[in-house]
Design a protein around this nucleic acid. Structure first.
Length: 252
DNA sequence: AATAAGTTCAACCGCACAGAT
DNA sequence: TATCTGTGCGGTTGAACTTAT
């Protein structure tokens, strides 16, 4: 069964927003606040789809947006977050105040990809491009909300975020090990060897990043372990075994 | 100056999730 | 439990802009 369209497409404008439309949207949200995007266009006197209004506001009109070039620090943070999160642009944007997911996604595709390639780093895997293929297990990051469609997308794009395969996929690029598995965190492997325990083993990935009340939280702690937010999520992911130094950047 | 090629980024599309009923 | 509705997300598109020839 299909879904009803989000708006009457026949009576909505498309394409670039005019100054007048922007002004109407800003004025309406200032007066009534965000929310109920579906009914907003009509109430604000805009011939736009609600989704279009939301996008325009979030990506362009919001007063707290930081316009202008990305700093070197932001670049490095985006790279690090992408190495941990993959194409979870909204989560990445959540760690960069004043930046939007769309902006970061565009910036990644136009600047950072090239930057990493010039460094000899594969922007998808964050591994050195000429790094010899090893039998080392691939780290898998799993989101509780992951679904088959997303898995399929990631399979096609060769992304780093994938759950286990439903059916074997023949590798098209022999340099990329696309096989991903659910594997125990690195420190657990260490603990098995050393016999030591760690108190943060129940922290899920999202909470380990310090993203409070994240919708992907699967542990229910919302980032609080033993009364404090963890800053050791990176250890949790077991990525300290990673190849690239910038991955050790401390998360706040 | 003209125009082809390359780049950027705002906006759209389709899908999935969460909450309401 | 099943279905509907609103919202949010990630991938993609294409117009506008810039650079090279």
């Amino acid at each position: 069964m299909g879904r009803s369209p989000c708006c009457e497409k026949a009576h909505t404008n498309k394409g670039a927003w005019t100054k007048e439309e922007d002004d109407r949207l800003i004025a309406y949200i200032r007066a009534h606040g965000e929310g109920c995007w579906r009914s907003l266009p009509k109430a604000a006197g805009l011939l736009r789809c609600g989704k279009s209004c939301r996008l325009r506001w979030i990506n362009y009109l919001r007063p707290d947006l930081k316009r202008g070039n990305f700093t070197e620090e932001e670049d490095e943070l985006i790279i690090k977050l992408h190495s941990l999160l993959g194409n979870k642009w909204s989560l990445i944007a959540g760690r960069l105040p004043g930046r939007t997911d769309n902006e970061i996604k565009n910036y990644w595709n136009t600047h950072i990809r090239r930057k990493l390639l010039s460094r000899g780093i594969d922007p998808t895997t964050h591994r050195a491009i000429n790094e010899p293929q090893t039998s080392q297990e691939v780290t898998t990051i799993s989101f509780s909300s992951a679904n088959s469609k997303e898995e399929e997308k990631n399979t096609n794009s060769g992304g780093v975020l994938r759950k286990e395969e439903k059916s074997p996929v023949r590798e098209r690029c022999p340099d990329l090990n696309l096989e991903l598995r659910i594997s125990p965190p690195y420190y657990e492997q260490q603990n098995q060897e050393t016999g030591e325990g760690r108190g943060s083993s129940t922290l899920c990935f999202v909470c380990s990043l310090g993203i409070q009340k994240g919708k992907d939280c699967s542990c229910g702690s919302n980032g609080v372990i033993n009364g404090s937010s963890s800053s050791s999520g990176y250890d949790f992911l077991g990525l300290k075994t990673g190849i690239l130094d910038y991955r050790s950047l401390e998360m706040k």
